[in-house]
């Protein structure tokens, strides 16, 4: 069951996105720690997307599948995905979303889509270049990934 969330970026949108993502992450059987990671990642994206979206609105498409939750953030301006990831940085931790999930950037005709993939293992388990040529996180998840 996928969900489409359209919102104004900011603290209210962040709180809403975080809750929705956590609920869907719990549905696919992720551990409590990874559910919390999903909440943090979605909240960070929706909170900090103000300078990255092509217009003023952010659309998050959340697609749960077996053991995985994929979040697509769109429509981002060119370079918007990178700006969004940088904006989510936490002092001493670095870019938060990349610490929590695998990320990649897909191109659209007139912009970008930030794809965030959360599974049981976190980004450390699949570090290295991804098939699509996008980025792959190099650090482990913030919380412990239980089996």
């Amino acid at each position: 069951m996928s969900a489409r969330l359209e919102l104004d970026p900011g603290p209210v949108g962040g709180a809403v996105a975080g809750r929705v993502a956590a609920c869907l992450a719990a549905r696919v059987g992720l551990s409590v720690g990874r559910v919390e990671d999903a909440r943090l990642a979605a909240e960070a994206i929706a909170h900090h997307a103000g300078g990255a979206v092509r217009d003023t609105r952010l659309v998050l498409v959340l697609e749960p599948s077996a053991g995985e939750l994929v979040i697509r953030a769109t429509p981002l301006a060119r370079g918007g995905a990178e700006r969004l990831l940088r904006a989510s940085a936490v002092p001493s931790l670095g870019p938060l979303v990349e610490r929590l999930a695998r990320t990649r950037v897909d191109s659209q005709d007139d912009g970008e889509i930030l794809v965030v993939e959360l599974d049981a293992d976190g980004p450390a388990a699949s570090a290295g270049p991804s098939e699509s040529g996008g980025r792959a996180g190099s650090a482990g998840p913030v919380s412990d990934a239980a089996p």
Partner: peptide, 27 residues
């Protein structure tokens, strides 16, 4: 809208809606 959620109209969606409202209310 401040936030809009699109879901299939099935019982399982109610939990997601309730979580959305909790986040909104807390914010």
């Amino acid at each position: 809208s401040t936030a809009s959620l699109e879901l299939p109209a099935v019982a399982e969606s109610l939990t997601v809606v309730r979580q959305m409202l909790t986040g909104l209310g807390e914010a």
